[in-house]
Nucleic acid binder design. Structure first.
Length: 197
DNA sequence: CGTTTTTGACCTGCGC
DNA sequence: GCGCAGGTCAAAAACG
């Protein structure tokens, strides 16, 4: 079985925000064609957004989706607005809401936890992580959704300046699909992106 | 023994 | 200026 090689290994500084009222198979196809991505998700049962995520990381495009922007909590919007005013603000904020039994979302990158904070009004503490790769300043915050504890909100800030350590570009036949499987969220309900001007 | 996590202290921005 | 809340630091502990 042959898999495509990374279409553009030097493509590391790309940001685009998409917003859709409904993210369906048609939208998935449109994005795949727009960015010349290839669907090599391992199972037919993956949702469109899971497939796109796999395609993004394999590419690696730093795109983001907002399949249900209207469902964003007001508090989250305010937080993003507030952070925009910081002078050392990062360029990109992504929020993924995933249904998961685990608090930590295995996205293929290696993270080091550096803080935990109880958040007012939430029974669950927020966890702070930094990318373990030297020189990479990407951070992520992990919250339990207060309105639905089954869901985990993962907020990414910044862009990695290196490829995911779990991604194997397919220059040989011994490509291991488990690197893609680590990206399979149990349920990928929506993601949201704010790109600073 | 090197790496990661824990956790209290400290820092910073914001509202009053 | 003060207090609060969120974010970060860093030393110690835990882990593999």
């Amino acid at each position: 079985m042959n898999y495509p090689s990374n279409p553009n290994p030097n493509f590391t500084d790309f940001a685009e925000t998409f917003e859709f009222d409904d993210f369906d198979d048609t939208t998935f196809q449109m994005i795949m064609e727009e960015f010349s991505l290839e669907d090599h998700s391992p199972t037919l049962s993956w949702t469109s957004s899971e497939k796109l995520l796999a395609a993004e990381v394999t590419s690696p495009l730093q795109t983001s989706l907002a399949t249900s922007p209207m469902s964003l909590e007001i508090g989250k919007k305010d937080e993003i607005k507030k952070r925009k005013r910081h002078k050392d603000d990062h360029q990109v904020i992504h929020v993924f809401k995933t249904k998961s039994a685990k608090e930590t979302l295995d996205d293929g990158y290696k993270w080091r936890k550096y803080g935990k904070k109880t958040i007012r009004g939430s029974p669950h503490p927020r966890h702070y992580h930094k990318c373990s790769n030297p020189g990479c300043i990407v951070k992520k915050k992990i919250d339990i959704d207060t309105s639905n504890p089954e869901y985990v909100l993962t907020t990414y800030e910044g862009r990695h300046n290196h490829p995911s350590p779990s991604v194997v570009y397919c220059d040989s036949d011994d490509f291991d699909l488990t690197s893609l499987n680590t990206l399979s969220f149990q349920t990928h309900t929506y993601s949201y992106s704010h790109s600073a001007p």
